[in-house]
């Protein structure tokens, strides 16, 4: 499976994603500079974390106008798998590929920590190797991960089952106490209606090998690979 990993000026999780796809998952990984305009040779696209354009104005606000973003839109419209991680999620929001926006963390602090997430859907290309309601442990590292949307959008996210990951206790309790950044409804990750574009603040690429303290992120990429293989059969 061919993964394109988009590199914006200021991306800094691109090499981690590349490493996981190539050396851990043993699939094909390619860096794609943000000036590129064609993603048609890929099976999946990763928008990695970092601080594209220094997060000037708003996180992801300038990156969304990079030439590659038109290609990402086109790729997603055709049903290609797109995953935006951390800054990649912020870019997907700014680009309108996913609804909502990010605010500064409620605590005003940049949070670098391990959190628990509840996986609320397992019928997506990104989560089908998880079990329903499974709680996973995964690193977060962000200053603007406080997900916000208006009440109508939240209702539509709920009714369309677009909320995929929520911050929770180790037992799966989605309580304000376990919400690290103030996100509305403890949202950590959402998917588009069609189910092929996922945005998540936590970093699956940072927990895909036991040596890094956890392998729950592995299943996100493994799900994508497995899904693509099933689809091409």
């Amino acid at each position: 499976m061919r993964f394109g990993i988009v590199v914006f000026p200021g991306s800094n999780c691109d090499a981690d994603c590349y490493y996981v796809i190539k050396d851990v998952m043993h699939e094909e990984a390619f860096y794609v500079w943000h000036k590129e305009r064609d993603l048609s040779s890929f099976d999946a696209v990763i928008l990695p974390g970092g601080f594209s354009y220094g997060d000037y104005l708003r996180a992801g606000a300038i990156a969304r106008f990079s030439p590659v973003m038109s290609a990402v839109k086109e790729f997603a419209d055709k049903g290609g798998l797109v995953i935006g991680i951390c800054n990649g999620f912020q870019i997907l929001l700014e680009a309108g590929l996913l609804p909502g926006a990010m605010l500064r963390n409620k605590s005003l602090k940049f949070i670098c920590d391990q959190v628990h997430l509840k996986v609320s859907r397992t019928d997506t290309p990104f989560t089908h190797l998880f079990s329903e309601g499974e709680v996973i442990k995964i690193p977060i590292a962000h200053g603007e991960g406080n997900y916000y949307c208006d009440p109508e959008t939240l209702e539509s996210l709920k009714s369309n089952r677009q909320i995929i990951f929520t911050y929770s206790s180790p037992e799966g309790l989605e309580d304000e106490e376990y919400n690290p950044n103030g996100s509305i409804a403890n949202i950590a990750g959402i998917i588009n209606k069609k189910g092929n574009v996922l945005g998540m603040m936590p970093h699956p690429e940072r927990c895909s090998e036991a040596v890094l303290g956890g392998t729950d992120g592995f299943k996100v990429f493994a799900s994508m690979i497995n899904w693509a293989k099933e689809a091409s059969r």
Binding site: L57, R58, I62, F65, E94, P99, G100, A101, Y148, D150
Partner: peptide, 8 residues
Amino acid sequence: ELLANPVI
């Protein structure tokens, strides 16, 4: 288009 994000 850019200076403000109409969502927030």
